[in-house]
């Protein structure tokens, strides 16, 4: 499985560097929260993200994931994730995969724009990417050594209702999460909130990478809300994370976020960074490759 992940990562990297048609999108700075903007139809975004987390009474960790985000239509985006982690002083392990879909049900833009989110996860107990916080996820869960945690396997379905709004350049988003382990575990709940804005609302007339409109700043807050039997904030973890993204004209985007745990159940620091590149017209490229010669 680890070999499979390495091969997939190599494939992603070669796709990034060999892709001829690259466009630069405006990337929101969020790592956990989602806004209502989907990938452009036919475009593929290849992304790599890292999370460095501190661990009290245990080893710090570096978790990472590769994300392939594809715009199937203007109202449907699908994403495929491969993820892994290194726990310092222990080992590096492949921790699983995810397949998520986001669908926009409404035709026009409204003050509040809903997006429906459906995700399937197949991951081991060693998963540490903290892509979302749900139920009673707490820091002490990560104390289990990799050698033991990787033996536990979970399959999970996750549903989200994303409500996002853009007003005077500001984006505000609220994500409500419900996750169900496909074994006999109760529904778990979580949330993510975000606000972001570009540094400049007007674009400058110059070709530049350091123009203010290429930078987005924001903040996100996320955490668990317990499960069906014990709903609420008791024994849950919560984070607040200022975030920044920078989109270059060449198509590359960079993101950085420094998260802070808000209670004793949270990791004290969660530092994230990521790099992505958008490949426009990927669907057509694939289609051309398989087209019958006349």
């Amino acid at each position: 499985m680890a070999r499979c992940a390495v091969l997939a990562s190599l494939l992603c990297c070669s796709t990034i560097f060999l892709a001829p048609a690259v466009v630069s999108g405006q990337e929101s700075p969020y790592f956990v929260a989602y806004d209502h903007y989907l990938e452009e139809p036919g475009s593929l975004e290849v992304e790599y993200f890292s999370t460095f987390g501190t661990q009290r009474a245990g080893d710090n960790f570096h978790a990472f994931w590769t994300e392939l985000e594809y715009g199937v239509t203007a109202s449907w985006t699908t994403e495929f994730y491969l993820e892994g982690q290194s726990t310092f002083g222990q080992s590096t392990v492949f921790t699983g995969l995810r397949w998520e879909n986001r669908v926009r049900p409404l035709k026009y833009e409204h003050f509040i724009n809903p997006i429906l989110y459906l995700e399937y996860e197949k991951k081991s107990g060693a998963d540490k990417i903290l892509k979302e916080v749900e139920g009673h996820d707490v820091e002490s869960d990560f104390l289990v050594p990799n050698a033991l945690a990787r033996k536990e396997h979970d399959q999970e379905m996750e549903l989200k209702l994303i409500l996002s709004s853009t007003v005077k350049g500001w984006n505000f988003t609220e994500n409500t999460l419900a996750a169900k382990n496909l074994s006999n575990n109760p529904w778990e709940f979580g949330y993510a909130l975000g606000a972001s804005r570009p540094l400049a609302l007007k674009a400058s007339g110059n070709r530049c990478n350091f123009c203010r409109e290429n930078f987005f700043v924001g903040v996100e807050m996320y955490g668990g809300l317990g499960d069906r039997h014990h709903f609420g904030l008791k024994e849950t973890s919560h984070y607040l994370a200022p975030a920044l993204s920078w989109s270059l004209r060449s198509g590359w985007s960079f993101r950085f976020s420094q998260g802070f745990g808000l209670n004793d159940n949270s990791h004290r620091l969660v530092t994230r960074w990521g790099v992505s590149r958008e490949i426009s017209g990927f669907g057509e490229m694939v289609s051309r490759a398989f087209r019958r010669r006349q």
Partner: peptide, 23 residues
């Protein structure tokens, strides 16, 4: 630009701030 033509494949561009859409 703001609403796109989602059914015909044009995404919404409200991601761009208003002044950029006017530009």
């Amino acid at each position: 630009l703001t609403n796109g033509v989602v059914r015909r494949g044009m995404p919404v561009w409200s991601r761009l701030p208003e002044p950029q859409r006017w530009q």
